[in-house]
Amino acid sequence: MEPFTHNDGNRDELIIQQKRDIEKEISDTTPLISEQLPLTCLYAEYSGDEIFTAKIQDLSKKYKFIRRTRPDGNCFFRAFAYSYLEYLISNNSAYQEFKKLAEESKEKLVQLGFPSFTLEDFHETFMEVIQRVSPDNAGGHSTVQDELHKIFNEQGYSDYVVVYLRLITSGKLQEEADFYQNFIEGDLTIEAFRHLEVEPMYKESDHIHIIALCTALGAGVRVEYLDRGEGGTVKAHDFPEGSEPRIYLIYRPGHYDILYPN
């Protein structure tokens, strides 16, 4: 932690207040997860920018729609969960497999040393969400799809899903600490990294978070990188490498949204 050389607790409070104001402005104007929008809506954000315009054009050959997530630091986890559940509700056998894995994940985290009392709270909500979007539920696919969208825009449920995925990610990092230590720059230990960058809400995700979560859940993710890099085409990366993607995300520096392939 930053050493404080002053005696004034108010400075922290001022910074916290300012952060809250900014967060409130974002949450008032942006839903946690938007409706599906045509990918071409991205043009408007970069009008006059040749590099981005060319890249969006390239991207639109592969993807028709985008679904925006609120830029609150949790966007990767929220986009991941939404997109994966969307895939699972159309694939009953994969859904059943995931449900079993999710059910068993709590015991695994307890064994890794997570406090079972509080873990239970998140796990219960996580399982409730999975149950509510079961492909076997009455009303069929479109009803379940609507339910998914509703749940993910309810802050309480939506955030608990994010918390639980953060805990699974943290658990994976701990379980394979020797391996993941290689991804960490500087002299932070895995232990410190988990507590500073993974478990706290609103902390942005990096490759290490993505790899750990995908590996823990056995879910392939393709990330399309829309940035200022040269070449005129958007570069994609699959996590874990060589896996079959079930989840498609677009990354623009600092932010993830969901993509829908043609």
Binding site: M1, F4, N7, D8, G9, N10, D12, E13, F114, P115, F117, T118, L119, F122, V163, R166, L167, H195, L196, E199, P200, M201
Partner: peptide, 23 residues
């Protein structure tokens, strides 16, 4: 702090939702 505020990492940048009042 003089006003009773506490400088403790788990109440700031190391907060985890798994902490409860007891912790």
């Amino acid at each position: 702090y003089a006003d009773g505020g506490i400088c403790l990492d788990i109440l700031q940048n190391r907060w985890s939702p798994t902490y409860d009042v007891s912790a």
